[in-house]
Structures are given as C-alpha cells and as structure tokens.
Amino acid sequence: MYKLYGRNTEYGVQKISLWVDSLHPDDRARCERELQDAITGVRIFDTTFRILTPSGETRYLKAVAGSILDHAGVTVEMFGVNFDVTESVLAAQKQAQLLDELTRINGELNTFTYSASHDLKSPLRGIDQLASWITEDLGDDINDQTKEHLRLMRSRIDRMERLLGDLLAYSRVGRSVDDAVSVNTYALVDDIYDLCVSNKNFTLYRAENMPIVVTYKVPLELVFRNLISNVVKHHDKASGNIWISAEEKGNFIEFFVRDDGPGVSAEHQDRVFGMFQTLRPRDEIEGSGIGLALVKKSIESVGGRVKLESNGLNGCTFRFTWPSIVVAK
C-alpha cells in the first residue's frame, strides 16, 4: 500500500490517513462519499480514483474493500486491496481520444466526398450538354473525326460521372442505417440480372437452393450487381453464361459467381480488387475501376471474405462469404 502511494512506512502515517491525504482533489469528495456508503452498508466499496504521490505524480488506483460487522451489524473494521491501474486507464483514454479523432476525420472525409461528388457533377453535365448542342448544330456538316472526338468526350464525361458516384458509394460502405431484412437471394439475383443484362445473349443459371438471409439488402445487392455487370462488361464474346450458387458454411453463406469469359491471369487476381484498377484500356471498356473495390469493401464490412479463382484462360469464379444473419453493430 505504501509503495503504491509513494510513501515510506517510517513516516508512521496510518493507512486511512494516507489514503485520504493522497486522493486527487477532484476525486476526494466522491471517494469519501462512496467509503461512507460502504461503512453504512449502502454499497460495496469498489471504485477507481486518482492519487497524487509526494513527487507530484498522478496515478490511477482501483480499490475494493469489505466490512467486518459487530453483532449489531455496525461496521467496526474494513479491509481491502488497491491495484495500480494507471497504464490501463491511460491506454483507454488514448484509445478514446484516437477514436474521437478518427470519427472526426471520417466525418470530414465523408462531407468532402459528398461535396466533391455533387459539385463536380454539375459542370460535367454542363459540358456534356454543350457537346450535345455542338453535335446538333453541326448536323450533317460534322466530319467523322469531329464526331469521334465529341463521342470520346461525352464517353469520358459519362465515365467521370460514374466514377464520382462510385466514390460516393465507396465512402458509404459499412455505415448502413437501414434495418436488416429477410432477403431471398434467388429473387434478388433474378431482379439484378433483368436490370443489368440488357443483352439477353447472356444466360443466367441460378441454383435452386439459393438461401434466404437476414441482412442489409443494399450492400448485398451492390455486390451481386457489380459481379454480374462485370461478366457482361469484360466478356470476350457477344454471348456467355453466368452461374450463381451458394453453400452453407456455419454462420455464413458462401456464394459463387462463375462465368465463361476470358479469365484473369494469376498475377492480376489480387490487383482487380484495388481502387481504379482495370485490366483493359479505359477507352475500350467503360468503367470507373472501383466496382470490385466496392465489392470487397462491402463484403468485408459484414465480416465476409472474397476471392477470385481463374486459370487465366477461360472463366472466372468469384467466391465470397456473407453472414446468414447480420448482427446489428
């Protein structure tokens, strides 16, 4: 006890006096009140407080004490133990400070992302409208080279708009405020296919045992939408096939999205999940390069994992796990 309080037994200070005199001024009234409550039997003495040592150092101690009562039930003596919890308290304070700072920074980033997305889209739409007017004004007098330049300009404006939208979606992943709902993944995949695959030369095969999960619908929908759209976008033929199935894996469902496209070589399989990554030139294929990064972040936000499997010659299989029941954070 004396060692914890930075004192020497030679001073002959009684323990209760040592405790009271060492209490931090801001904690003294509370601690004395809690001690009195313990003496009168109102509560057990179990508290954390600060002390000031003779050297001026502040320490955090935890004290737990019990009472010895006489035949009348009156406290005649107390006994207990003190623990030095300075390191754990300071660590918790530091953690709270870092979390507050991280929350503040994330809030600023979210505000910036939303503002940038909104403010940049307006001039982009104006440029696109201007290109459209130029095309209309020139009419039949427009030459092939100018027509191609205007087409490329509008194509890149469209790409930039989608990039801004995807950046906004990426910043929002993992912060769903919606309630978890029951989602029939068979019907979900069917709806996404009808929405995303206008070219019905691509055939969708769904397993009959596609599960019903209790989850946030929007993130799961985003995952399937990007994976199905990618098949059509990156396929090397005008027609193809998409197979989607699922298996139970404990508390998770493992989904498989497989295609018969050109495949992805081993050295590029991790790269595809990075931001702004495309394996073909941007002018050959429209995309922001964020789709699979969105997929990965959405899956990991609910505790799942995603993996790409391909022999690099024909076909890809995206495997990802998703909890059968999402637990609210």
Rank of each mutant, 00 (worst) to 15 (best):
H71A: 13
V42G: 10
L220Y: 06
N110V: 00
L90T: 06
Q93D: 12
L23Y: 09
Y193P: 03
N209H: 14
T75I: 01
L163S: 07
L152E: 12
F256N: 11
G250Q: 10
K121A: 10
I299A: 08
A65I: 01
V326F: 08
T53A: 06
G304W: 08
D190M: 02
R156P: 00
T321E: 09
R282T: 11
S88R: 14
E34C: 01
A180P: 07
E136I: 12
E284W: 10
L204T: 04
T111H: 12
V183R: 08
P25F: 09
F318W: 15
S298M: 07
G287T: 09
I105Y: 08
E300T: 11
A207T: 03
T86R: 07
D26S: 13
L188N: 06
F224M: 09
V295W: 08
S122A: 13
L35S: 05
S301K: 06
Q93P: 00
V326R: 12
N230Q: 02
T86N: 06
R175V: 01
F276K: 12
V20S: 05
N106W: 00
D179I: 00
G303A: 07
E77F: 12
N82T: 08
L18V: 02
P211Q: 05
T321V: 04
A238E: 14
G174D: 05
D144S: 13
V13F: 10
G80H: 10
D84T: 03
